[in-house]
Design a protein around this nucleic acid. Structure first.
Lengths: 118, 118
DNA sequence: TCTGCGTATCGTAATCTAACGATAGGCGGA
DNA sequence: TCCGCCTATCGTTAGATTACGATACGCAGA
């Protein structure tokens, strides 16, 4: 947990935008099943759950601090971030020398709908 | 999808009981994270999502018909059932010569709470 | 331009997963 | 008792996942 001292500025390049529009896609059927499987699979690892919690808690973006919060090597964390990003659960924006991650509210809402449909 | 002709009797040996009591366990923290990871991992496969849907749709138990509904070998389906059972998402009761599966409402509710806490 | 910091990617090894066929076990009916 | 059906388990193979260190890349400041 070594500090790096740049967590103060909340450069919210990715805003909590789009927190209102509803999702018209169906929550059942073959496509929805595949989607639910993909999303839950992406979330199906303790490290990735932890990352999601980090990003949800602080609503602003979180930059490289994520690595400091997990007991994993930098390259491993980067891979987990990639999995979440490919599933559409998070989004990464380049902010100068570093990258800022934040949740993708649309996808998270979608996941909740799909799980809720069970 | 070959029929086997015993889907008529709805022998509900596992009732939709316990659909009311609330869950007092926390939805955050290390234990909850691990739990969420385990549950989502168990659900993170199209075949298992499909099985869950089957069991949720018909509220009664579903016996061996599950194999007929999926394009997989019997042994493979049995393994997926085992994964879901070990995660606590479903329950299997022996009903004479066959086994009846049904969802475990408590765990399903728990999953929804955990996902909802994100 | 050069250096340093933060991140992604590569390469690799160990482990886990998914799928199948074959086989074992348990119960009910003949 | 024996036979047949249904399910679980075993053994195996191919492929995916997880983790790490090493390395490459890109941007800002000296």
């Amino acid at each position: 947990m070594k500090k790096r001292g740049h967590a103060a500025q909340p450069s919210l390049s990715c805003s909590p935008s789009g927190s209102g529009e509803s999702d018209l896609r169906p929550v059942e059927g073959e496509v929805a099943d595949q989607e639910l499987a993909t999303l839950t699979k992406a979330l199906g690892h303790p490290a990735r759950v932890q990352i999601m919690r980090l990003l949800v808690r602080r609503e602003t973006c979180v930059c490289g601090d994520i690595v400091d919060e997990l007991p994993l090597a930098q390259s491993t964390v980067s891979q987990h971030l990639k999995v979440l990003k490919e599933a559409g659960l998070i989004k990464g924006e380049i902010d100068g020398p570093r990258v800022c991650y934040c949740v993708e509210p649309r996808t998270l809402r979608r996941l909740k709908s799909l799980v809720g449909s069970l």
